[in-house]
């Protein structure tokens, strides 16, 4: 049924490449750069050829390929994090025109229509800058450790299926489970402040890790971790260590630090109901405190 194809398909035509019709139009970008961790930051301007339907990733790809600033100087390519380019891996978070968002789903046409011709790119402000737009987000994952965001199974031997779960419970849990640890919520959260711990010369790696972990744990754990705690406290097996999660959430850096600014839910690229999780955690914390009082 399939005939021998004599057609040679140009890869560009097949996959949405466009001709040079827009060659004259350009996109102007201002990037806040920083060469090394702890170094000085500085602004640099770039200009790349416009293409329809392009996103901030394709702008950065073009900057990397040209490695020239707007005034024609040879510069090192801008460093940035990215991976899936379809807003599901959580890598490419940055401040774009002052708003925390994913570079892959930030379309240039929309940015220019909303904010004017020049696009401004800055690294997230709540994490230590590694280089340019790359930041160190280890603390995000530390938050997941702290609240024990996992189902405490005995092991991976075959013990039959998991618990039965109603469609309503699944529909409640699923959105929380799509959290990709991008960090948008903590970037927007006034209570989550930057913690930067620099390794001392006289310190071993293990000592440094320990000191850094303690510093992370002293700060607010963040909306994402609170939400994960609620996700696992709602799971029939996960809730078997609900008390341990509540213990973590009511210690230093816990739910009491939330100032209810509600910025988190407004910036979440996955529209996860973070404030609902926080409200639940708040109520659970109250119950937990009373329970502890009577258990004494």
């Amino acid at each position: 049924m399939i005939k021998a194809s004599e057609t040679v398909v140009d890869a560009d035509a097949a996959h949405g490449g466009h001709g040079d019709g827009n060659a004259t139009r350009t996109v102007r970008v201002r990037v806040l750069r920083q060469d090394v961790a702890g170094g000085e930051s500085y602004w640099e301007r770039h200009e790349v050829a416009y293409e329809p339907n392009m996103n901030v990733i394709s702008v950065l790809q073009k900057i990397a390929a040209s490695a020239k600033s707007q005034d024609g100087r040879r510069v090192a390519p801008v460093a940035w994090d990215c991976c899936c380019l379809e807003e599901v891996c959580g890598s490419c978070t940055m401040l774009i025109n002052g708003r925390t968002r994913m570079a892959c789903s930030s379309l240039v046409d929309r940015l220019m229509a909303e904010d004017g011709e020049e696009i401004e790119l800055r690294p997230m402000s709540k994490f230590p800058v590694v280089r340019d737009l790359v930041v160190d987000r280890k603390r995000l994952f530390g938050g997941l450790e702290k609240v024990k965001a996992w189902v405490p199974v005995e092991g991976s031997y075959d013990l039959g299926p998991g618990p039965r779960i109603s469609p309503e419970e699944q529909e409640d849990a699923y959105p929380l489970s799509t959290c990709m640890s991008c960090g948008c919520c903590v970037e927007a959260c006034p209570q989550y402040t930057k913690v930067e711990v620099v390794r001392r010369d006289d310190e071993t790696e293990a000592e440094f890790e320990k000191r850094r972990k303690a510093a992370f744990n002293a700060g607010f754990v963040g909306p994402h971790a609170v939400s994960q705690a609620m996700l696992f406290n709602a799971h029939p097996t996960g809730r078997m260590i609900a008390d341990e999660r509540m213990e973590a959430l009511t210690r230093q850096g816990g739910i009491q630090m939330c100032g209810n600014a509600q910025n988190c839910v407004a910036v979440c690229p996955k529209s996860i109901p973070l404030t609902r999780s926080i409200a639940r955690a708040g109520r659970a914390a109250t119950v937990w405190a009373i329970k502890k009082l009577f258990d004494r």
């Binding site: 996992w150 189902v151 199974v153 991976s156 075959d158 013990l159 039959g160 299926p161 998991g162 039965r164 779960i165 109603s166 469609p167 419970e169 699944q170 849990a173 699923y174 489970s177 696992f232 799971h235 097996t237 996960g238």
Partner: peptide
């Protein structure tokens, strides 16, 4: 699949769970 179910993967459910 059973293992992943036990690990908490939010698989879609039938009306019976």
């Amino acid at each position: 699949i059973d293992l992943m179910d036990r690990l908490g993967v939010p698989f879609n459910r039938t009306s019976e769970g």
